[in-house]
Design a protein around this nucleic acid. Structure first.
Lengths: 137, 137
DNA sequence: ACCTAATTGCGAAAGATTCGCACTTACTCA
DNA sequence: TGAGTAAGTGCGAATCTTTCGCAATTAGGT
């Protein structure tokens, strides 16, 4: 009667580290690998950063998490079951705005028609200036 | 009657390295700092990578070049006088498609209306799958 | 309980970018 | 035209992020 754990259903071994990485991503929303590691360390201080990286990759491969590039270097991870959304990031203050994917359907439709390009707005953020930062130059 | 050099007009000193960096960016189109360095080395073999980085930053500050994030780590630089365009990058094969900025005006308009967000599509690419890569999974 | 392959920890390596500092050089001005 | 000076350069080291190899550990099947 043991209900199969969601990780096992994906063919993954169930390790404390892996569970903690997954739940950290879920509770953090958008997080860098470093953020995730920090959160996991609260309950599992010894976790190695490599392990975090490897688990994020593994979890992404089975579709439980996703990463997005918000601008510079690092990727951020979020749970895959979160509602589909595009990301707006302010170049100035870094604030992150989530936008329902429907908001962008006119664009993705025309890119498809005109260029045969299948847009994936989840993977890369849209850059710009938020209202506040736009006003004060 | 010495006509002022464009770099001098921006208040910058005119060094061989700086001129070469600028002309490398102009002739390369979209280039990483490493690409730029390689090109500059053809005429100025001794140039240091730090110098390339510093000049790219300087040139960007005065508005002669711009950088764009195409996806992962590195930024790429292009001349600022190039026509305004958004960038589509294929996640799979990395091909880069340039799209006139008007193509995206419906999106930027609605992001402005709905979120007060001033979109800057030059700074971050739009990710997705090109036609070829979409067909073969 | 036992075996095997997956997973982890650790330290090193790789790649990209930045920084400090001493030396050089483009430009200013007398 | 010849200093003087501040910007710019080269060099090496430092950072930061991410990846890798390998030996030790451990989860899950039998």
């Amino acid at each position: 009667m043991a209900e199969p754990h969601e990780l096992r259903e994906k063919g993954l071994r169930l390790t404390p580290q892996r569970e903690l990485v997954l739940s950290a991503v879920r509770s953090l929303g958008h997080a860098t690998p470093e953020d995730v590691a920090e959160r996991v360390r609260q309950t599992h201080p010894g976790i190695n950063l490599s392990t975090v990286y490897r688990n994020l990759e593994t979890l992404e491969n089975v579709g439980l998490v996703q990463h997005t590039h918000l601008g510079h270097g690092g990727a951020t991870y979020h749970a895959a079951e979160a509602k589909l959304h595009a990301h707006l990031t302010c170049e100035r203050c870094g604030v992150l705005i989530e936008v329902p994917i429907e908001e962008t359907s006119l664009l993705t439709q025309s890119l498809l028609n005109d260029y045969g390009f299948h847009t994936d707005l989840e993977h890369l953020a849209i850059s710009g200036r938020c209202e506040d930062c736009f006003e004060k130059p």
